[in-house]
Simulated scan of single mutants.
Amino acid sequence: MIIKLTKMVVKKEENTQKPVIIEEVTEYQTPFVSGLIYRKYMELVEKNVDYVKEAPTMEQLDDLIALIVEAFQNQFTIDEFYAGQSTQVMKEKITEFIFFALGIPMDGEIPEDVKGDFEEDATPSDSGGKDK
Rank of each mutant, 00 (worst) to 15 (best):
K7V: 08
D107G: 04
S34R: 11
Y28Q: 09
R39G: 07
Q75P: 03
I68K: 00
E24S: 07
M42C: 09
F99M: 03
N48Y: 11
K40W: 09
Q73G: 01
K93E: 15
I104M: 11
P19V: 02
Q73E: 15
V69S: 02
I22Q: 03
P111M: 00
I104Q: 12
A55Y: 15
P31N: 11
E92I: 15
G35I: 13
I22P: 15
I37G: 02
K53A: 14
I37H: 09
E70W: 05
G35N: 11
E109M: 09
I104E: 05
F72R: 11
I104Y: 15
P105R: 04
A101E: 08
M42Q: 15
M8H: 02
Q17N: 10
M106V: 03
L44P: 15
Y41N: 03
I110K: 08
Q17V: 00
T30D: 01
Q17T: 05
T95P: 08
V52S: 02
E14C: 08
V10F: 12
P56Y: 01
T26Q: 11
T87V: 07
T30C: 01
I68T: 03
T26I: 08
M106F: 14
E23H: 04
M58I: 04
E13H: 14
V20T: 11
E46L: 13
F99D: 13
D113Y: 13
A71L: 04
Q60W: 07
V89C: 00
E43D: 09
L64I: 09
V20Y: 07
D113Q: 13
D107A: 03
G108Q: 08
I98T: 06
T26P: 13
K7A: 02
E59M: 10
P56K: 00
A83W: 13
K93A: 06
Y82S: 04
